[in-house]
Design a binder for these strands. Sequence first.
RNA 1: GCGGUUGUAGCUCAGGGGUUAGAGCGCCUGACUGUGGCUCAGGAGGUCGUGGGUUCGAGACCCAUCAGCCGCCCCA
Length: 412
Amino acid sequence: MRRQAPRGTQDVLPAQAHLWRHLEGAFEKTMSLFGYGEIRTPTFEEYELFARTSGETSDIVSKEMYDFMDKGGRHVALRPEGTAPVMRAYIEHSLGEAGLPLRLWYCAPMFRYGRPQKGRLREHHQVGLELIGSSSPYAEAEVAQAVVAFYTALGIEGLEVRLNCIGRQESRARYGEALLRHLSGWLAHQEPEAQASAEKNPMRLWDSKSPEVQEALRGAPRLSDYLEPESADHFEAVCGALDEAEVEYVLDPGIVRGLDYYTDTVFEVQSSALGAQSSLCGGGRYDGLIGALGGKDAPSVGVGMGLERALLAMEEAGSKPVPDELEYYLIAASAEAWPRVRRAARQLRAAGVSCQFDLEERPLKSQFKAANRARAAFAAIWGSDELASGTVTVKDLKSGVQAVRPESELFS
RNA sequence: GCGGUUGUAGCUCAGGGGUUAGAGCGCCUGACUGUGGCUCAGGAGGUCGUGGGUUCGAGACCCAUCAGCCGCCCCA
């Protein structure tokens, strides 16, 4: 038996758990501000769902899927991303019949089988939203504003929204050919692996961190020159909508995204706090996805935001985990007071007041130390004097001020 | 998946072939017979990541393996 969490997974310990609740609470609040409804989908889906939507040649499908055969011989996969399952549910339950656009959010674990490092896990958690059924540039603007609102609520600063337009499937294919033609001389003396990767998805070269690759791309054809007029017009309108919404952004041809279903607009939010895994979130427009899954086509925009990375960015910003507080720590100052302490605990809890006491009946000093550790606001102390007079000594543990009061006041 | 690096107490780390493996912080007890944070004294706590190997002798050296971290690939 291994006594370690599986590779690339993490336990969330009590000291950290309240931060997670804070994160999830902030997102839910943001979503209610924008009028989105929650959707929960299964942790695993049919393998084909992801293979078809993300693309067989995408890295997520070709090397990062957590897939297996179940006991019934079905090929299933732990969810690597949030959009495809939501779209499957949207089609399965005809959610579009209630009228479009439809606004949905989710919060769920995601699984990708890669080599872990800081900010990259095999199981991580994402919150995300999908705005289904709008081709308006204001759809992108709304999603971007929701993202910014969420991070702002968390106190994460130094954000950079990076925006790009990758056009439609056809223009991307034409551009890829042109790019490969331009780079064929350079590519000829690259590693076979790099060649294969470039041929699979030439655009991905723009995303490379290698200075050598960036150098080779100098003077290469630009994707923006290959866009359909509608794509170019739409992108301009999106930029205008973002300007109007006062969302700051930078245009970045390096944002190309690894999933096949994106069309036109793609974006990421990056933070300098994260090292090599600099993306806090990623998303974009996917106008053909629902149709590809056999539904009635509906142009849509969505985004997924990594919670672990948000947490890292918050730590960088100085947010510290603080354990939950307790109202009273009940203390027995003499041995005969223990039954009174335990009865008081029952009374207080019945009245909805949080409290704790020492199960081991340890010395007074230990009880006070435990009270500090439990972050109790007050200590309530019973000794022989209090028992005799029906009183209790209440001590404010921050100021150290204490007073003897009738017991009845404690329970009112 | 590729390249590198690290793993010794709850935490941060020292020990780099030679008796019973150490420190600081934290934890427990006492000084303090009814009062926490400070001080002092004592105490508990270790499969030296795991499995092999080399050696008279391994925490240390070698191999494998597991896990973390850094970079790449990719992304949340």
